[in-house]
Design a protein around this nucleic acid. Structure first.
Lengths: 353, 353
DNA sequence: CTGAAAGCGCTTACAG
DNA sequence: CTGAAAGCGCTTACAG
C-alpha cells in the first residue's frame, strides 16, 4: 500500500477518489454552479458511497456566513408575565446556536394593540433576514405578513397559536381543543351528577376569541361525549379590570348554584381573587397558565388545577426548528402539539414549563 | 494605526498583546506546566481583560482527544419497558455531543439480578473512562463501586434514584416523597370522608423497597397533614406474577370496602388487570410510569391517573451534566428533581416524557 | 520555559 | 469548468 492509498477523511478523501480538487468537491456538496455534469455525478457517487457526513464544526469555523432570524412575539405586559417563558426558551436556543453564526433580532409587540404589531412588522428588514419565528396573535395582519414572507421564500415558524392554510414550516403550541377536553375530564372527577358548571371567557380582543372558543368547545364536547348531564352556563367578559369582572361574576353566581368554574385562559387568577375575597372556597376552579398570579392562588387552594402548555419549550423548539431547516435543510413535523400539563399545589414547584 | 495594531481574535490577539507565542497562551489557558509565573500572570490578565471565550468549535476540530463515558443502567425487561425511555434520552444526548469527541460505553444489567449488576461493573475498564452515568439500583454494590470511582477521581452522575452521602456530581430523578404526596392530593379530590384506601407495594427486591416506602410515606403524610380521616390499609406483595398478585388483592378487597387504590410503582397495570377482569370499575386507581401496559389500562379507564417523572429527560440531562463537567468544567445543581407529571386518558397522547 | 510550524476539515477568494 | 492557496481558531508535537 503506497502512501497515496492512505485513507483521508472528508472532502480530501472524496477529492482523492474522484481525482478532482477539494474546491470542486465543495462546489458539488453545495450544489453551486460551474461544475460539469460529469464530475458532479462522479463526486456525488463517491459521497453516497462513503456516506459522507460533513463536519459541521469545521464548516462553521471556515465559513464567515451569518444567519439572522427575526422573532416576533408579544412583550411581557403588566397584566401577565406569560410571554416571559417563550422568550426564555428562545434565548436559550439562541445561545445554543449562536456559535454556529445565528443572530436573533427581536420585535416585541403589545398583545392588546394591533397597531404595535403592525409597527414591529414594519421595522423588520426582510432583505436581512433568513427566517422568522412568530406568534400570530392578530390573524389578518399575520396572514398579510406571512404572504410577504412566502413571496421572498423566507421560512417561518408559528408558536403559541396557529393559522391554518399557510405555508409555515411548522407550528409549536397547544392543541386548544384537547386542553379544553382534558379540563372537563378533570372536572368530571370532582362533580356530582346534578352540579352546575360555569364557563368563563375573559378577553378584550375579539381576535383571541378563536383561541378561547376552541377550548370551550373541547370542554363542552367532553360532557357531550360522556353523556354527562350537568348544566353548563357561560359568560363572556369583555373587560379585564377587576371591578368589571367581579361584578359580572357576582351576577351569575348569585342566581345559580355553580359547583365548578372553568376559565378559558390565564385570567383565572382574577376569578380566584374574587372567590377568595368573598370567602367562597367550595367551588372547584380550573384555568390556564403558569403565571405568578395564578401560582399564588394555586398554592393557597383558591385554584384547583392549572393547565399549562410548556411556553418555554414552544419558544425553544420553534427556534430550533427554524435553525435545523435553514442551516441544515432538515425539516421535522409540521404540527407539534405541546404536552398538556396538569399543575396542582403539590407538583407546581417541580414544574419546569 | 499600523498593521501591527490590527485587532486579531482569540489566542492570537492574546499572544500579540502579551508578546508571547500562541503556544504559550494555549499552555496558560489549559493550566499546563512549563510556564513562568510571570508570563502566566501577564497572559491571564489579558484573558480577563478581553473576557476571552474560547471557540469551542475550533478547539474540538484541532484536538484529537477522545472522551469516554460509561453508562450503567438496567436493561429493558419483559416485565416493563420503563428503561427504554432513559436509554432514549441518553442516546439523544450522546448523539448531540458526539461531534465533540464523546463516546459512550453501555453496560446494561438485569434489575432483578444483583449479580448481573456486579458483572457489568467488572466489565468496565476504569482506566479508559472519564465519567460514569449510573442508576444505583443496588445500594450496597453501588456504594462500593462509586468509592472506587472516587479514588480514581472519575466523576459520576446518578439517575432515577439517589444514594445519599456520596460525592456524586449530581442526581437527576424523582423526589419520591413528593410524588407520593401528590398522589394523595389527587386522590383526596375523588374521595368521600369515610372512604377506605389501599396502598399496594409490589416488588421482589428488598433493595427497591426504600424507593417504594418513601412514596408511601409521602402519601400517608398528606392525609395526616390535611387531617383527613380516611382509613389507609396496605399490602406488600413480594411476588410479581399475576396469580400471586390477584390472590393477594382478592383477599383484601373481599374483606374491606376499598374506594381507592394507590400502587407505589409501575406494577399498577397488574392491579388494573385484576380489577378489569373482575369487572370492578368503581374503584379509583393511581399508580406510576408511562409504560405500554399502563397506558392501555389508562385509556380504557381502568387506571385513573399515572404519575410520571420524565424518564427520558433523566437520561438526557444526566449525561449532559457529565459532559458539561468533564469537557467544560461546568457544574450545575447537585439535586435535580424531575417534574411530577399527571397523566390521564386525555393528555397521555401528548406526553413526551 | 518558549516559539515556530503543521494540521484539524472545511470555505473562500483568486487565478486560469 | 477547475485547481491551488490561504485561512477559520484552536491543539499538538518538535525543537531549542
Amino acid at each position: 500500500m503506497s502512501a497515496k492509498d492512505i485513507e483521508l477523511t472528508g472532502v480530501k478523501e472524496i477529492a482523492r477518489r474522484a481525482n478532482v480538487s477539494i474546491g470542486t468537491v465543495d462546489r458539488v456538496i453545495h450544489d453551486r454552479k460551474g461544475v460539469s455534469q460529469n464530475t458532479k455525478d462522479k463526486v456525488n457517487a463517491i459521497i453516497k458511497e462513503l456516506d459522507y457526513q460533513p463536519n459541521i464544526l469545521a464548516r462553521r469555523l471556515a465559513s464567515k456566513k451569518q444567519v439572522v432570524f427575526a422573532v416576533l412575539i408579544p412583550k411581557i405586559s403588566e397584566e401577565t408575565n406569560y410571554w416571559e417563558a417563550p422568550l426564555l426558551g428562545i434565548d436559550q436556543a439562541g445561545a445554543e446556536i449562536s456559535p454556529y453564526g445565528i443572530t436573533l433580532q427581536k420585535y416585541l409587540y403589545d398583545v392588546n394593540d394591533k397597531n404595535s404589531f403592525l409597527e414591529q412588522i414594519k421595522r423588520i428588514d426582510l432583505s436581512l433576514i433568513q427566517g422568522v419565528l412568530l406568534a400570530p396573535s392578530f390573524i389578518e395582519e399575520s396572514e398579510h405578513f406571512v404572504k410577504k414572507l412566502e413571496i421572498r421564500k423566507i421560512p417561518y415558524v408559528f408558536i403559541n397559536s396557529d393559522i391554518q392554510g399557510h405555508d409555515s414550516l411548522s407550528y409549536f403550541g397547544p392543541d386548544l381543543y384537547q386542553s379544553g377536553y382534558l379540563s372537563a375530564h378533570l372536572m368530571k372527577y370532582l362533580l356530582k351528577k346534578q352540579d352546575e358548571i360555569l364557563v368563563v371567557n375573559i378577553s378584550q380582543e375579539i381576535d383571541n376569541q378563536h383561541h378561547l372558543l376552541r377550548k370551550e368547545q373541547g370542554f363542552r364536547n367532553y360532557f357531550a361525549d360522556k353523556k354527562l348531564e350537568n348544566t353548563i352556563l357561560k359568560i363572556d367578559i369583555k373587560q379585564t379590570d377587576y371591578t368589571y369582572i367581579s361584578n359580572s361574576l357576582e351576577k351569575v353566581l348569585k342566581n345559580h348554584n355553580i359547583a365548578a368554574i372553568f376559565v378559558t385562559n390565564s385570567r383565572v387568577s382574577t376569578v380566584a381573587k374574587y372567590l377568595a375575597m368573598t370567602g367562597d372556597q367550595r367551588r372547584i376552579l380550573i384555568g390556564f397558565d403558569y403565571t405568578e398570579e395564578n401560582l399564588s392562588f394555586l398554592k393557597k387552594g383558591d385554584i384547583d388545577f392549572l393547565i399549562c402548555q410548556k411556553p418555554r419549550e414552544q419558544g425553544y423548539k420553534g427556534l430550533m426548528a427554524l435553525y435545523q431547516f435553514v442551516v441544515h435543510s432538515k425539516s421535522g413535523e409540521k404540527n407539534n402539539f405541546m404536552p398538556i400539563d396538569i399543575i396542582t399545589s403539590e407538583n407546581c414547584d417541580f414544574y419546569l414549563n
